[in-house]
Design a protein around this nucleic acid. Sequence first.
DNA 1: CTGTTAGCGCCTTCAT
DNA 2: ATGAAGGCGCTAACAG
Lengths: 342, 342
Amino acid sequence: MPTIRDVAKLAGVSTATVSHVINNSHVVRPDTRQRVLAAIERLNYRPSAIARSLTTSVTRSIGVMVADITNPFFAAIVRGIEDRLETHGYNLIVCNTDEQASREARDLELLLARRVDGMIIAPTGEPQPLLREFVAHNIPLVFIDRKPPEPCGPVIAIDTRAGTYAATDHLLRLGHRRIAILVRSPMLSTVVGRLDGYRQALRDHHLSVDESLIYVSDYAVEAAHETAHRLLSNSPWLTAIIATNHAMTLGLLEAMQEQYLKYPDDISLVAFDDNPWLTLVTPPLTAVRLPIQALCDATVKTLRAAMENQAQSKKSSHVESQPLPDILLQAELISRASCRKI
Amino acid sequence: MPTIRDVAKLAGVSTATVSHVINNSHVVRPDTRQRVLAAIERLNYRPSAIARSLTTSVTRSIGVMVADITNPFFAAIVRGIEDRLETHGYNLIVCNTDEQASREARDLELLLARRVDGMIIAPTGEPQPLLREFVAHNIPLVFIDRKPPEPCGPVIAIDTRAGTYAATDHLLRLGHRRIAILVRSPMLSTVVGRLDGYRQALRDHHLSVDESLIYVSDYAVEAAHETAHRLLSNSPWLTAIIATNHAMTLGLLEAMQEQYLKYPDDISLVAFDDNPWLTLVTPPLTAVRLPIQALCDATVKTLRAAMENQAQSKKSSHVESQPLPDILLQAELISRASCRKI
DNA sequence: CTGTTAGCGCCTTCAT
DNA sequence: ATGAAGGCGCTAACAG
């Protein structure tokens, strides 16, 4: 591939001049500029982002770590982030942690070595000492959807506490008293929130919380499926179930189908994370809709602000900018036909 | 961040030695090795992938371009590729082209500047002169799912022609004669295949093809939704519909719901791209299952082979390795309850 | 076995 | 307005 030197030679100027026309970093006489541009064109020259990064220590690449891009929730997040960042010349290095701390650690390692300009992370929930490394080197970290065990950056999340509260409250108002909830490991900040909301709603209705109605399942659809079967078999007297993510909803519906249980006749249902297909099952599912676009918006804005801060503090040192705030977005209960009055 | 020089200084050796212990590129006496390792540890040193790339001209990053990661098909592809590449120390730079040639061009530009080691592309279908640039610079290109307008790399795809043939044939054998098909722009290679299969099946059953039963829709769910409405209103006499991707299936089902049309009673249905939720609608949808894992497998293998070739040819020049073959994977029709005999 | 040296391709003072 | 030179962090010969 041609280098800046080839261009300089062909245009009969120095590499400095070429650099200046490329970056508009300096005024260049129109005719020399034209010559340079012509040379660039002729050689099909493209500045090496690598070399540029080395000198400027700016990579214009952002690390994005999510648990599983196959989950529509995260797919939408990646897309939303890409949409908002690609237009500014950033590239995304996307990593699937698959909910494994070890993979998360390896990915962090790789991205650190790659000197990304910033990171957007949906953390697994395990503590990651490597994160300290990022903050030590002033690489902006923004957490999306989930809070890391040790705070080390702004958290942009959805108020799942309120979301679950709304779901539970909705069922309670319909007269339900024995409401099961299907969640992932309570290690995750989002799960803590969900359970909080669930418990609070019960308490507000002067009901005690039956811990045996809280079903914890692993992340995969198959695991959710199994757990759902257990749930349905163990607690025949319950009247409603809240599934707190896409996989749980899928697994639960499969299990119900297999056990010939109908909703809302046998059991009422509320799903988390709305999705087009939820309206296509019979009857359509009541769901808590998560504001994904707003989430991406806030996340990218926060990240850009953080990177801005970081750039500033590099120039004029000791201008401590205040840390960026966490943001909590509200979810919305969409009432459809999967809950009945009892 | 500490550099290799800091490590060398602290360990009392030269940078070359440090480099050698990092890369195992040379035998180093055990005790010096230990000192170096200790220094690395103490400084929390991490080699800069940027600098390394500049000297070795290897980035260990792969560009991945898909239309829309929000489509479960592509989400699964990205995940499948990541799974198979991350373990080898590669990172994915993921780009959403959103089916727009302009965005695709911009992404190609960025990835070229980033000097990726290879590319996996699901092309939009528009000609992209920039692709020539990649082949000119010997950057391996592998196309996944779709064929680019001008051949410039191996194509790993699913035999959609056979898949649609099977779907159409299935309906024909059930006695259907007026079968509509919902597709995207026939510009795409995958759509050409689909229509071929459809037409061929009809011909094989000695039926003429009614072009008015071929409904072309834009990519988004909303577009599919509208087109589906048109389809349902314009052709009241048809007895079956084939929806050729996830968005089409969604849009069609929504439209049928809105028009109070039941399947399989009013119309029989076959969907492309199986998905867990297809078994949860009532009745479960007959679908063509796409072998996504095999697709990712073949794609990554081909890419790695191509990169291997490229590396070899760099060493011993003029050892022309034969071009890698295209691969066509077979889809499978999963018969469920959405088609009835007539 | 270890150190010296010369780039990789680019940007950036600092002169001119 | 343009050029010369140094350096970003690392690896790859080659010497010792």
